[in-house]
């Protein structure tokens, strides 16, 4: 009996994911005791809906951070892609093309990030910091800092339609996470992501085209951020050029809470999903209990430090 307990304990202690799951469960149990509404289906759908934008961006961010990089431009990409969708549809472009254009814009900025970082040999922090300013600036220039409504049929559908009883945003998040999990675990490209983050020089000497892989990684990050923009436009029926500012930090927080190593080479996509959920559950719980959202910031900050600290302890054992 003692032995089996010990081995269970060991397993939990060894796997990053189970740690975060434990934290998430602990918070959830606490909240369900404190607020009866918390456990309801509607509330859970709320949590998932709230988390969808951060979760999407964080999926791309996971790839970027595992590969040893960082992408600060994602929030601005959401804004610019949103603006691209809204302005093109307003100027008469068919909706579906407008959405396609938005996703194209996000992917293109990602590709630019990848090129600047790999060919231009700039630190990812610097390159994407620059791109963050440029994309945000462009969004403001195009809209003259105004936000206008796009209340067209398809856009409205994105916000209201349900698939299999679930809001479309949740379905999209699910698909993206299954896809990214498949990429990281089953595909060559996923291996390259880990290996480049683990030791870039060794990766190059193993015959990996590091330039090409990095461009793909940042392109994917841009693409999922643009997808987040689609969901945002569908929810707000508009695309404020100032939207999603700070979203990059939320995404990074979700990735880090999820157990991905900031120095690259280690991480899982499922961890990131749980990381994003923890942040969203906290926000939701605090709202239900009428606690100031300022405390949310405080606690999420504390969880970031706590989770990485535990991770370090585990690795130094």
């Amino acid at each position: 009996m003692i032995v089996s307990m010990k081995s269970i304990y060991k397993k939990i202690f060894k796997s990053t994911n189970s740690w975060i799951i434990l934290i998430a469960l602990f918070i959830a149990v606490l909240l369900s005791i404190m607020s009866p509404v918390f456990l309801s289906v509607t509330n859970f759908q709320n949590i998932l809906k709230q988390v969808s934008i951060t979760a999407l961006i964080a999926a791309g961010m996971t790839l970027v951070i595992i590969s040893g990089g960082i992408d600060l431009s994602v929030g601005s990409i959401v804004a610019l892609s949103g603006v691209a969708i809204a302005t093109s549809i307003r100027s008469g472009v068919p909706e579906i093309l407008g959405i396609g254009l938005g996703i194209g814009v996000g992917t293109f900025i990602g590709i630019l990030n990848g090129i600047i970082i790999s060919l231009g040999n700039l630190p990812p922090f610097i390159a994407t910091l620059g791109m963050m300013g440029m994309a945000r600036g462009l969004a403001l220039v195009i809209t003259k800092a105004e936000s206008f409504a796009v209340v067209t049929p398809l856009i409205m559908k994105i916000g209201t339609t349900k698939l299999f009883g679930l809001p479309i945003s949740i379905v999209i998040v699910g698909i993206v996470y299954i896809l990214f999990s498949y990429i990281l675990n089953q595909m060559r490209f996923g291996r390259y992501v880990y290996v480049i983050g683990g030791n870039e020089e060794a990766a190059r000497l193993s015959g990996i085209n590091v330039v090409k892989q990095k461009i793909k990684i940042y392109a994917l990050s841009g693409a999922v951020s643009a997808l987040a923009a689609v969901i945002m436009v569908g929810r707000l029926y508009s695309a404020p050029p100032t939207s999603a500012s700070g979203a990059e930090l939320d995404a990074i927080a979700a990735v880090i809470i999820g157990g991905t190593s900031f120095s690259g080479g280690i991480g899982t996509i499922s961890g990131t999903l749980i990381g994003a959920l923890i942040m969203s559950i906290l926000a939701n719980g605090f709202n239900l209990m009428n606690i100031s959202s300022f405390w949310q910031q405080f606690f999420i900050g504390a969880i970031i430090i706590f989770s990485v600290w535990i991770d370090n302890l585990r690795h130094n054992k």
């Binding site: 880990y194 683990g198 030791n199 060794a202 990766a203 080479g265």
Partner: peptide, 13 residues
């Protein structure tokens, strides 16, 4: 260590 191995990754990888 610097140019060959991926120390944080497993034998298979």
């Amino acid at each position: 260590k610097d140019q060959g191995l991926f120390l944080d990754l497993n034998i298979k990888t």
